[in-house]
């Protein structure tokens, strides 16, 4: 069964919330900048990429790992949806 859009966002949000929790960083909204708040650091970004690749069965190219695609939960969701649409 294909992932619904809601469940994509829920899974991304859960990953972000867990990472924030572990680091003691506040995570308040889907719009918030994850790099500015410190949720995503140089290690977390690659864990997040692996998480997205495994969870949604897609491949993220190095040139796609940029701030525009990973700025916030909303942007990550938009990026994942774009990848899934181009795959389908």
């Amino acid at each position: 069964m294909p992932e619904t859009e809601a469940s994509i966002k829920v899974q991304i949000r859960q990953w972000v919330a867990e990472t924030a929790e572990r680091k003691g960083v506040e995570f308040t909204s889907d719009d918030e900048s994850l790099t500015a708040s410190g949720v995503i650091d140089s290690l977390a970004i690659f864990r997040l990429v692996s998480f997205l690749e495994e969870t949604f069965e897609l491949r993220v190219a190095d040139e796609e790992i940029v701030n525009d695609n990973f700025k916030s939960v909303n942007e990550i969701e938009r990026f994942v949806n774009g990848k899934l649409a181009s795959k389908a």
């Binding site: 790099t35 995503i40 140089s42 190095d62 790992i65 701030n67 990973f70």
Partner: peptide, 10 residues
């Protein structure tokens, strides 16, 4: 900047 530092291609 942080948002550049995190992303190797950037």
């Amino acid at each position: 900047p942080e948002e550049v530092q995190l992303f190797p291609a950037s």
